[in-house]
Design a protein around this nucleic acid. Sequence first.
DNA 1: CTAATAGTGTCTATTAGACAGTATGTT
DNA 2: AACATACTGTCTAATAGACACTATTAG
Lengths: 276, 276
Amino acid sequence: MTQKNKQANDKDTSYEKFAFSTDLLIFSVSRGEARTCRTLSDKFFSILLVRRTKEPYSGKWCLPGGFVKEDETLDMAADRVLAKETNLHNIYKEQLFTFSDLKRDPRTRVISTAYMALIDKERIVDELSEEASWFNIHLEEDKELVNVVLENGEEEIKFSIKKYVEDKTTSKYKYEVISNDEIAFDHPLIIMTGLDRMKNKVQDTDIIFNLMPEYFTLGKLQQIYEVILDKKLLDPAFRRIIADKVIKTDKTIKTGGHRPSIMYRYKSKWGDKDEK
Amino acid sequence: MTQKNKQANDKDTSYEKFAFSTDLLIFSVSRGEARTCRTLSDKFFSILLVRRTKEPYSGKWCLPGGFVKEDETLDMAADRVLAKETNLHNIYKEQLFTFSDLKRDPRTRVISTAYMALIDKERIVDELSEEASWFNIHLEEDKELVNVVLENGEEEIKFSIKKYVEDKTTSKYKYEVISNDEIAFDHPLIIMTGLDRMKNKVQDTDIIFNLMPEYFTLGKLQQIYEVILDKKLLDPAFRRIIADKVIKTDKTIKTGGHRPSIMYRYKSKWGDKDEK
DNA sequence: CTAATAGTGTCTATTAGACAGTATGTT
DNA sequence: AACATACTGTCTAATAGACACTATTAG
């Protein structure tokens, strides 16, 4: 047994080749309706999905993606897909995970590296392509089961996921699709992986500012923290924590029947102006 | 310009195929020499390297790895490589990053997903293969420059890396190889990526216990924290923090000219015994 | 006036850092 | 006794949570 393994792989220099793609989980924040003219509009955390027009999964929704080209790195491929969908460049993105299940694509074996990207939706000037749409995320956790509802005002997509701790030392979650009729491929897993990553990163990095415009109010910023973390924050604590991440400007904004709010800009600990 | 991108990729359903491999960054802890019979032995954080016997980079050191097979997921391939090198199974591992630079392998385009794995070296009963060796890691940071020395008692490998903040919101580091004569491929980048991940995870997960045997003393555990974080910790603070991650046993161990120490076991917050 | 959000002051509870001390073995 | 590590007590500083309060606008 101990010797078997050593021998078995001794001269494995031959290799197979694989189709290789990248899928993009593009996050943004959507404004819901204001309930009255005085109240703030609700905020939703949302992702961009595109409707497939070809087999397999024709008619279903999936994450934007594409095959990697021979002269492209993964980063380049991800940027290309991002630009194709949003016409934006210099977007924040990070590698999420590489998915390699044998049957994740019914056509042929495809390995895919997923990226997540964060944008301020308001920056998109061109219309989205006809097949693309922003879906607001609604999560409902019931012990191990996570029910996800994605909704874009017209259509509602649901899937549910079993979530359990895969490794006790790192509390890393593993996801298993329980039901899913509307999303193509293993993309529900990518969505869960990205949401999980976001929750973690929002708490211990400044990643959230990639969702914000240059000038924003602390109230708006707090709303977005709350919608991502899915819980209310206390004002004084929140302001203490972000105090040294923002710069007060002399702009103010009047947004209704209450005191106008001061606008701030992001200031990273690596320097004031972030010249992306 | 805005229209160009949309058109250019409209019917990209064709795809190229890529060679696909996995590389393993296997971490462990090595005992150095005790200075006197009374002192504790120094600990070193170390990685497993193998000497290449074939071109390219014949004679250089590299991370253990191999091409992914057609009927294997990445996880399976990583487990296979792990078993081949150590004859151990059920090892802690996690996906690190997928490297896709165009010229990272001089033979042909190879995309590689790196994993990091943590083991208690003492569990390895079989001899390592002749070409494999544990190298202790010594880091020396001078502003942006990181000088890395890997040493296995006989041989010393050096390389240096420029480390800079790639993204200001997340403080994610990007690495660039400045000098490297002894390590094959882009493996210095994988090593840096893994060290960075370890430093982060040691602080906010229990990942370190994957390096420990079942029974250990708090002094040993603290030494290992210190060697990974590369700084001294204060005893009372350390013990406060790990107090609820360990269970006291009735075993003690006498290790020299001082009070014997109590042995502990790991207890995860998900339950006492972790039946891997 | 009231409703609604903007923003602040302050008390308390918890946690982190520091230092000094005690305990108990070998040589 | 001297040394080396094991382990604890306690003071202080910093941080997080909670609540109550003031400020300023539109209607």
